[in-house]
Design a binder for these strands. Sequence first.
DNA 1: CGGCCGCTGTGAGTCGCTTCATTTCTGTCT
DNA 2: AGACAGAAATGAAGCGACTCACAGCGGCCG
Lengths: 324, 324
Amino acid sequence: MATARDVAELAGTSTAVVSYVFNNGPRNVAAATRERVLKAATELNYRPNVFARGLKAGQTRSTGLIVPDITNPFFAELARHVEEAAAERGNILLIADSAQSRDQEARHRRALFERRVDSVVMVSVSDAPDISDFVTAGIPVLSLQPVDDGVVASTVTINFEAAAATATRHLVDHGYRDLRIMLGPSDGVGLVRHRRGFEKVVSEAGATGGEWRSEISRFEASRVAQELLRAGDRPRAIYATTDEQAIGVLHAAYALGLRVPDDLAVIGLDGTKQGEVTIPPLTTVRQPLRAMAEEAMDLLADAHGEQHRVQSFTFEIRQSCGHH
Amino acid sequence: MATARDVAELAGTSTAVVSYVFNNGPRNVAAATRERVLKAATELNYRPNVFARGLKAGQTRSTGLIVPDITNPFFAELARHVEEAAAERGNILLIADSAQSRDQEARHRRALFERRVDSVVMVSVSDAPDISDFVTAGIPVLSLQPVDDGVVASTVTINFEAAAATATRHLVDHGYRDLRIMLGPSDGVGLVRHRRGFEKVVSEAGATGGEWRSEISRFEASRVAQELLRAGDRPRAIYATTDEQAIGVLHAAYALGLRVPDDLAVIGLDGTKQGEVTIPPLTTVRQPLRAMAEEAMDLLADAHGEQHRVQSFTFEIRQSCGHH
DNA sequence: CGGCCGCTGTGAGTCGCTTCATTTCTGTCT
DNA sequence: AGACAGAAATGAAGCGACTCACAGCGGCCG
């Protein structure tokens, strides 16, 4: 493995110059010298050793991403966007999957910390993740989901209350009077906002509401929804706070022989691409992942204390809600 | 951030001893001293600097994983299993998503190389990825999909020819006589094996075969399948060489008003969990991801030259093929 | 009682890169 | 031509952990 010294020797110069060339500074290098160095580097297939660099410079040009469940396509898409945004800014992204487990998440936090990532983007399994290690080490953390007060992290999110209200209003406006909201398992701000948006619209419309909780997985959501739909007072419409759960609801309806949207309207939230090819295609509130990822990386790069940004969502009407 | 020197001072000893304690060797440390060191380390929240360690030791206890498309749940599940297998062996996993792009894949290979991963697990976008950097640097590479001759990498795969034959035979045995295979876009050994297994069974049975090609995405697969199904000589059964494509076929049928399995039987290959909640649930050949991940990490740890291991698949019969 | 062995502990060199202080070079102005 | 400013290049000092050669210290044997 070639080192900077090898390159320097071949180019007839010093390691300092090699470093300046590869980092575009902090000193200037004459064009001719730069050429020689680059040529020598190519010839030797030289790559700066990340460890030596990280050791000396104290920064690693890497960002960590923690997602609660990489098998959920929403988080997979999110990872892709964050990766791209990081790459555009010259950073590499370390993706860590918590597999829905708080312990795994904690393990990953420790691993990222030890690898001295410059910053962390996270969607935690919980609403109040312990990020004190990062905070005391001065590593900025940004959450792409609302977090409880007391968690010192910036956030980039959509307005979930408005999102829930939009979806619910759409259902109400099209005549549905018996609705349910399917919420996630944890009890934080996120849940509160979803519920508020839903209930406000329901009560204004004088409709019937009600909530169900499920783990964020299509499998659990299907199980829970089957219970719900088998019960006597089956609702006519369900708003699920994630697409993953909405897909479970679609399957539950299928399993029970109910037709969507004729017997049951379904709306999700997230806006993954796969909503286009569910059966039937899923009406959903789309989070602007690309823009959120960009803004996240920008905020982390500047890192002027805690920031909270709200991005706007779009409502994608497809067939599962019955009115397109 | 506390260093070994800080710990040593607090414990009244030298950095060498701190190192011996944290690595259990290579020198012995008296029990009393070890205690003092551990206590000091806890007090200072000391973590060995990964970069200093990696620089000196030349190994990083990290493995890279390159997948062609993390939004494909099969690869997401694969990533999770490989991550677990790596963690059990004390390694951390760096996940890289090629996003179906050869360029991205090349970029990730470079990034992993620079980060001096000890080994690489990959599923390439192509059948003959250029892994010469790793090879010349002595970093072992293992592919979880068959690769063309000339690629110096170990492999852990199932027998695709047998898998295709099993699925096809199931269709033939249940009376289907007009079949199609949906293959992926690239032209390597993988494709050849799938095709061979399919065609052998088709011709033995005197049935009608035929092949279609599609990108590995449910969206493209749906588009391609809609063309296929709209044509005059619509087949009665389709075997897709990935679940992702099979799901696209399911959607294509839905979009055209065909019922699965009554009008069209569908079988996939991969065996992701989500096949349980597709509409209808998907019959599929399951790859033993957990076992494959374990064996992959074991082979990479021992790294005795190129190895090729074949694992056994299972055939999961659900409703999409019409006979359960 | 001297010599030697084995067990602990220490100091310093090393990994490859970045960067600062310093030297060397180039070219312009008087 | 001499002086000098500014640019370019260099050498060397770290960054933090690992590890080797070596020193200190008992204890045991002859």
